[in-house]
């Protein structure tokens, strides 16, 4: 029996906010997201507004900050950096505004490779500050296939990079695991429509439970889909808690996430 009350502390490091043109999303607003978080045991969610990733990074980043202001302690913001939309300006904004706790890039949507010069300032900033960077990663993508991040990690070894979706497909997960096994600065994030509990177990078997992060992509996709894969996966309690919140608390140190009991943060 699963019961109706969650038993875990959750930090969601991969989320969005607002509508998306390709399909209808019921109630994609921040207040509804927080109501879902209340049902799932989610302490804090780090969002990158859909407006920012899909169309206008600067304007969308303002939407993310408005959500932070409306729900202090529950929502934190990524600054979306679009390599075609004045990335230096958004990096300066990120540096100056402590409501941003990380960077989000989406190379597949923005059609520009993670190894390209337009992203260099992002990796350099993360290298210098320890600011986490969440990137979409997708098997066989010319822009963000997991293997491409190995070159970035080799050049910027102190830049913490989260491979969003961990490559998406089962074969992509294998590739992401290989990359993360070679470079300790690469972290694996578990949301994706083809993800399963056994695949998450393989991530943990190969790189350990301390570099696998829970994310959901909500409200792009319902948060409970990804959460269910982790909650029901054949993990130890310690592994599960690492994935659901502990690792996020340890990773987001440049600007610590709000909330938390301190139980998860150790060396």
């Amino acid at each position: 029996m699963i019961g109706r009350q969650p038993q875990h502390r959750v930090v969601d490091v991969h989320a969005h906010l607002g509508p998306y043109s390709l399909f209808y999303i019921p109630d994609p607003d921040a207040a509804t997201m927080v109501s879902v978080m209340d049902r799932t045991g989610t302490e804090v969610t780090v969002v990158a507004a859909n407006r920012a990733i899909q169309q206008d990074a600067h304007l969308g980043n303002s939407h993310s900050l408005a959500a932070v202001d409306a729900h202090p302690g529950r929502i934190a913001a990524y600054a979306v950096i679009n390599p075609w939309q004045d990335p230096e300006r958004e990096l300066e904004r990120l540096a100056a505004d402590e409501r941003f706790v990380g960077i989000k890039v989406h190379p597949s949507l923005h059609k520009y490779p993670v190894t390209g010069a337009r992203y260099a300032a992002v990796w350099a900033f993360a290298e210098e500050t320890g600011c986490p960077v969440l990137s979409h990663s997708e098997h066989r993508s010319a822009y963000d296939a997991p293997s491409l991040f190995e070159a970035v990690a080799a050049k910027y070894p102190r830049a913490p990079i989260i491979l969003g979706h961990a490559g998406i497909t089962p074969a992509g997960v294998d590739e992401a695991i290989e990359a993360a096994a070679r470079y300790e600065s690469l972290w694996l994030e578990v949301c994706g429509s083809q993800m399963t509990g056994p695949l998450i177990q393989e991530m943990i078997d190969r790189v350990g439970s301390r570099r696998v992060l829970f994310g959901s992509d909500f409200p792009f996709i319902d948060q409970r889909m990804s959460l269910g894969r982790v909650v029901c996966a054949p993990l130890t309690d310690g592994q599960r808690q690492d994935v659901l919140s502990g690792n996020a608390r340890r990773l987001f140190r440049w600007r610590p996430l709000p909330g938390g009991t301190g139980e998860d943060v150790d060396e």
């Binding site: 019961g3 969650p6 894969r229 909650v231």
Partner: peptide, 15 residues
């Protein structure tokens, strides 16, 4: 064909 945890948690922790 899917991870069963998806729909179990989806319904159990629904609103």
């Amino acid at each position: 064909v899917r991870d069963p945890g998806e729909s179990i948690v989806r319904l159990a922790w629904s609103g």
